[in-house]
């Protein structure tokens, strides 16, 4: 099977590896796992004025899981919260041409995005209500 250079590149040189401090302002953390295969994914976003200015991830798992999270963080940067909500696992599958056996990796990435957004929202709501 032929893969685009971009995909192989995500696989070999994943972008945005690392992490932010959890309690840093504007940071949302999504922590998800795939109980079928034991993969663990932590995806973080840094938000300023409703805009995702940076994203980082740490993934323990197979190449597809790493490529999926790498791609997800690339896509997240520069998107608004609302736009980020629209990222679907099928977009990742299509971009990376993931085979059926690896689709759960893209699901994991989507779940991680959702969880990070929810965590940010929760923290933001908390701060707002505390400020009131």
């Amino acid at each position: 099977m032929a893969y685009s250079d971009k995909v192989v590149d995500h696989f070999n040189n994943p972008r945005n590896m690392g992490s932010f401090k959890k309690d840093e302002e504007g940071v949302g953390t999504g922590m998800v796992g795939a109980p079928e295969c034991g993969d663990v994914m932590k995806l973080q976003i840094k938000v300023q004025n409703d805009m995702i200015v940076d994203a980082k991830f740490k993934t323990f798992g197979c190449g597809s899981a790493i490529a999926s999270s790498s791609l997800a963080t690339e896509w997240l940067k520069g998107k608004t919260i609302e736009e980020a909500q629209k990222i679907k696992n099928t977009d990742i599958v299509q971009e990376l041409n993931l085979p059926p056996v690896k689709i759960h990796c893209s699901v994991l990435a989507e779940d991680a995005i959702k969880a990070a957004l929810a965590d940010y929202q929760k923290k933001a709501d908390g701060t707002t209500s505390a400020a009131k």
Partner: peptide, 12 residues
Amino acid sequence: GIETMGGVMSSL
């Protein structure tokens, strides 16, 4: 198995 992303083999 079959070849999957990144030239990895996935066992069936």
